[in-house]
Design a protein around this nucleic acid. Structure first.
Lengths: 112, 112
DNA sequence: ATATATACATAATTTTCTTATGCATAAGTT
DNA sequence: AACTTATGCATAAGAAAATTATGTATATAT
């Protein structure tokens, strides 16, 4: 995905959070939205995105709905009830992760 | 490593940062230090740590120095000059990653 | 006509981790 | 004395999640 290896492992959380915000989105839209809000810093590759969406669907976190627009097919994804709950968990984990990493970057323990 | 998948990709950055703080450390010491400063939240496994240390050494970011303490062998690692420079880059990347993820968690773009 | 954008998908490979296993010494427990 | 836990290193098998490459197809811009 990203330029830095740190993004490894955060794709699912990103997808879930975007769907929590936007109600329903299709794959290509997700890649563009992420590019937009990160000002180009994070580019989600198709090879990572589509398998991830399929897996989230298989796990029952996402529902799919096909739609034809301008003779091109879109697969719209939205959170299931289970997906909404799981999104909350993932975001809590992300906040915890960020807090932990900030502790490591900005250590109080170096004073002692 | 961690309880959450988010830690994937951040082990090298953690190692480098600890060595920047502590000058020189050995493997087991790193696992204990991380456990301590994260209050047990993050446990680095040996299967992840030792190959990571070997790779950082092979890349010329770390220097090794053996030392026998209490009839047990320790491998002390410290940053090379190259490693010190690379650590600065990795920490900048980490800060950028955290900023990006916070943008995603706490989106201004959802208002529009 | 040709390139870029839109829209999906999968296969091969790589990276990074977990889990399991192995060796060895020291210290604490029953 | 026997056994467990802690200290200290290492590697191998397997899983997970990404990259890179490739494929299909339509729409739009040059």
């Amino acid at each position: 995905m990203g330029n830095s290896k740190l993004y490894k492992g955060s794709l699912n959380t990103i997808i879930l959070k975007l769907l929590e915000e936007s109600e329903k989105m299709y794959g290509y839209e997700i890649t563009q939205k992420v590019k937009e809000i990160t000002k180009g810093e994070l580019n989600i590759t198709e090879g990572a995105l589509y398998p991830a969406l399929h897996k989230l669907e298989a796990e029952g976190l996402l529902d799919v709905e096909m739609q034809k627009v301008d003779n091109r097919l879109r697969k719209y994804y939205k959170l299931t009830e289970k997906g909404t709950k799981e999104t909350a968990n993932r975001l809590t984990e992300l906040e915890e992760y960020i807090r932990t990493m900030q502790t490591i970057i900005n250590p109080k323990w170096s004073i002692q």
